[in-house]
Design a protein around this nucleic acid. Structure first.
Length: 254
DNA sequence: ATGGCTTTATGCTAAAGA
């Protein structure tokens, strides 16, 4: 089973890129982040053989899960705060697998409530995943975590130190989530440094190769044991009118 | 660079992203 993630930075602006990528890569599931609008083009994907479930809001955020197999929606918001209106979480069951699609808050600037919201969101996420682990529900969680796990996952660790994506508080929360027994799928078979999923639009970051790794799959133990590969596909970042993120895809053995 | 681009909003500038 092939499962992919991609922060598309507006599904409207990136529709053709996403359709082309689906046709070329044929994943069973694609979890999309940053839809950036209320409308989701469901029928465009049905034409390609994908069922779609989307959680959207006006202008910002938004996540959608596309699947060749039937989708059961388990949660369309992260439990733990009924006042949280932001469209960042979609938990589904597909082919008997619990697949969680997240767009974790950015958190900048760090001296504002945005950073507090990020850390609180990560704490709620840990609670939810802990619950699934306690109930022995195997799961894969994927998406834009807005977390640089280690210094080797960015081009300039010193320069990123004060940023919400690499602050020590952020990495501690990320580690606490991993310590539920999850694995960073990319690191199961790949020990290379400077492997990125995002390159800024500004300052020639893409042509200079200055990126960060912030889009991740975390797997619970039974799925880690089934992991065959986890690959970053940098090609879409080089297209005209590209998203600033590029897809990551895992393959699980039957 | 105190964000150099990019996108959404019912716009003619602001907000957000990372």
């Amino acid at each position: 089973m092939k499962i992919a993630i991609w922060n598309v930075n507006s599904i409207k602006a990136r529709l053709d890129h996403v359709k082309n990528w689906l046709e070329q890569n044929q994943p069973d599931v694609l979890m999309i982040q940053e839809l950036k609008g209320l409308d989701f083009p469901t029928t465009e994907f049905e034409t390609l053989g994908y069922e779609a479930e989307a959680v959207t809001q006006k202008a910002y955020n938004g996540v959608a899960t596309l699947s060749r197999h039937p989708i059961t929606v388990e949660q369309n918001a992260l439990p733990g705060d009924t006042h949280d209106e932001q469209a960042r979480y979609l938990e589904t069951t597909i082919n008997g697998l619990r697949l969680i699609n997240i767009y974790l808050p950015n958190g900048n600037p760090v001296d504002t409530e945005k950073f507090d919201y990020k850390l609180a969101w990560m704490e709620r996420l840990k609670d939810r995943l802990k619950e699934l682990r306690s109930n022995d529900v195997p799961f894969a969680i994927g998406g834009d975590f807005n977390v640089i796990p280690e210094g080797r996952d960015c081009y300039d660790p010193e320069g990123w130190q004060a940023d919400a994506l690499f602050r020590i508080e952020t990495r501690r929360k990320f580690r606490a989530i991993l310590n539920l027994g999850l694995s960073d799928a990319f690191r199961v078979y790949n020990n290379e440094d400077q492997q990125y999923t995002f390159w800024d639009y500004q300052a020639g970051a893409w042509p200079k190769g200055l990126g960060i790794r912030i889009d991740h799959f975390l797997l619970s133990p039974p799925l880690t044991d089934r992991l065959q590969s986890c690959v970053i596909d940098p090609k879409p970042r080089g297209l005209e009118k590209a998203s600033d993120h590029t897809p990551v895809m895992i393959e699980l053995r039957d």
